[in-house]
């Protein structure tokens, strides 16, 4: 049955509304970053800049520590993604292939850790990292971020791996592959789309994380969200600089997501239909 013109119009309108709701805050952020600092906060607020200015972007050069923080964020997010995948891929494989009560319990435990608010584990995590001498180190912050990433990745990857036919693996075993060999040579290449999607989500979770980064970093590994938040002082918020930094900080992720769009969509639907 073909949709009528009116039905298509309603759907298009709804989609447009949803897009506006999602895009508006970001558009406002970009617009504010292009206003002169004095116009950043006006009453009533204006969506479009009355005067275009790049002053907020130029001002970034005055803060070398902010520039360093972008490098720290990148390194920590990459480390976190690597650690997470290293742990989550075999864990998800085990859960998917051995559908035992222990596996289900493990998945449930992973879910529960996702439900605990990070602020509740912040201080114990801080104490552990300090006793290990890992505060203010890239690896320490990345490990802390991995505590968020690993449960998320296990859940995502387990559903992807459940969608891979067992026969593929069994054929590899018949041909002499060990279980680990089958995982490395068959399962991982087949689940590459899902692993890529998981990697992106884990990277983003680390890229945007605030609390653990705040507790575990001092001067050496300060991440960009902390450096951006420093422009909110006791008496005022430097909206201009904060918005320009936020735009710059979000750009790599947006560009990457656009470039990887096809792979992300393919990966997200991968586990949806079980063979």
């Amino acid at each position: 049955m073909k949709a009528t013109f009116a039905e298509r119009g309603i759907v298009a309108l709804l989609v447009a509304l949803i897009v506006i709701v999602y895009v508006f805050p970001y558009a406002f952020l970009v617009s504010t970053s292009l206003k002169p600092p004095a116009d950043a906060l006006t009453i009533p607020p204006t969506l479009l800049p009355q005067r275009l200015s790049l002053d907020n972007y130029r001002a970034i050069s005055e803060f070398p520590s902010v520039q360093r923080s972008f490098g720290n964020s990148s390194l920590i997010a990459l480390l976190c993604t690597g650690i997470t995948l290293l742990l989550a891929v075999p864990a998800a494989y085990g859960v998917a292939r051995y559908a035992s009560w222990a596996g289900k319990l493990f998945l449930l435990a992973a879910l529960i850790t996702r439900l605990i608010p990070p602020v509740a584990v912040g201080i114990p995590l801080f104490a552990i990292m300090r006793s290990l001498g890992l505060t203010d180190t890239h690896i320490g912050v990345a490990l802390a971020h991995a505590t968020i990433g690993v449960p998320l990745a296990i859940w995502l990857l387990a559903s992807f791996m459940e969608g891979i036919p067992r026969e593929l693996e069994e054929a590899a075993r018949v041909d002499g592959c060990s279980r680990l060999g089958a995982l490395l040579r068959i399962i991982i290449p087949v689940a590459a789309g899902g692993i890529a999607v998981t990697a992106i989500f884990v990277f983003l979770a680390s890229w945007n994380e605030f609390l653990f980064s705040l507790l575990l970093s001092s001067t050496g590994v300060k991440t960009a969200p902390i450096a951006i938040a420093e422009f909110k002082s006791q008496y005022s918020i430097q909206w201009g600089t904060m918005t320009s930094l936020s735009v710059l900080y979000s750009l790599p992720v947006i560009l990457f997501s656009l470039l990887m769009q096809k792979r992300i969509v393919a990966g997200m639907t991968m586990g949806a239909v079980k063979g």
């Binding site: 609390l211 705040l214 507790l215 001092s218 420093e230 002082s233 006791q234």
Partner: peptide
């Protein structure tokens, strides 16, 4: 060595 954090984060740290 100064460890500079956002306003509210002084309390948290």
């Amino acid at each position: 060595e100064f460890v500079n954090v956002p306003y509210g984060s002084v309390f948290d740290r």
